[in-house]
């Protein structure tokens, strides 16, 4: 892929990088929202220089000694300059403080192994302990099979952490982007108090290929795309990428105020 003229992931049109950047990496021809790395997302949404990183040095330990896994991780650490598939921390959005996590699809399609689960759990616990809301920008192929059962258990761990956050009267906002599937959808992604999504993102539990193999028929048009999930009641709203920062700021602002304080036990 040319760095100066990246291609749209859907219609394959090449765009001059400066125009693409100006368009928030949305294809002007087909409207596809190109996949973004974590730092680009942070730049688009968070107040300038407000992001403070958590757990930057946390790395996978290859608990199963799975074939080729360690080498693959090393390779990705070099190409992405990240140690794992999620970046977490705190930031401000239009002056409002929140914890903020972004998954990076370049890193094994941001699949969830021990590190992703642990970093997200710590971020949610930090929110609970410091009375902050939490935002997760999600893209993921699901649980990371190279970490076997440890990956599966991250689903339980992160979901329990969302529960503890909510029990303190604090919200989680999730933003589902292309693709959000498998064990990540079936844990924290679908547990947002408000769930936003980018247009035309693949969102589901089972992968379309697995479903096609199982049922032996073609998928209905638009199946497992954001618009389809919205129509089936699984999402709150679709948000244009250029509006994301402003919508998140509004969510933070509304949820920071309690007009009725009668329910005193929180």
């Amino acid at each position: 892929m040319s760095k100066l003229f990246p291609k749209c992931g859907k219609c394959k049109t090449s765009h001059f990088i400066a125009f693409l950047k100006h368009a928030h990496y949305v294809c002007s021809k087909c409207g596809y929202h190109l996949r973004l790395d974590a730092l680009t997302r942070i730049k688009m949404i968070c107040d300038k220089k407000s992001f403070q990183f958590f757990d930057e040095n946390m790395k996978s330990r290859d608990p199963l000694h799975f074939p080729n896994y360690e080498d693959r991780i090393k390779e990705l650490m070099e190409t992405t300059k990240l140690n794992e598939a999620v970046v977490t921390g705190t930031c401000k959005i239009k002056g409002l403080t929140t914890t903020f996590g972004v998954m990076d699809p370049r890193f094994m399609m941001a699949s969830m192994g021990s590190v992703v689960g642990e970093k997200i759990t710590r971020m949610l616990e930090y929110s609970a302990d410091n009375h902050l809301p939490a935002i997760l920008i999600i893209s993921s192929g699901g649980a990371r099979m190279q970490e076997g059962i440890f990956s599966l258990m991250q689903m339980a761990k992160t979901s329990a952490a969302v529960k503890r956050l909510n029990d303190k009267g604090l919200p989680l906002f999730t933003v589902l982007t292309d693709p959000t599937t498998g064990g990540v959808t079936a844990s924290f992604a679908m547990l947002g108090d408000v769930i936003l999504a980018e247009s035309d993102a693949l969102i589901g539990f089972a992968g379309p290929r697995v479903i096609a193999q199982t049922i032996g028929q073609n998928m209905p048009h638009g199946f497992q795309r954001s618009e389809f999930l919205l129509a089936h009641g699984m999402l709150d709203m679709l948000v244009e990428r250029r509006q994301m920062r402003s919508v998140l700021a509004t969510l933070l602002k509304i949820h920071s105020m309690r007009a009725y304080t009668g329910s005193a036990e929180v």
Binding site: M58, S60, R61, G117, E118, F150, A156
Partner: peptide, 9 residues
Amino acid sequence: YRRMGKFTE
């Protein structure tokens, strides 16, 4: 569940 996961720091 909190303790499940293997990583280094």
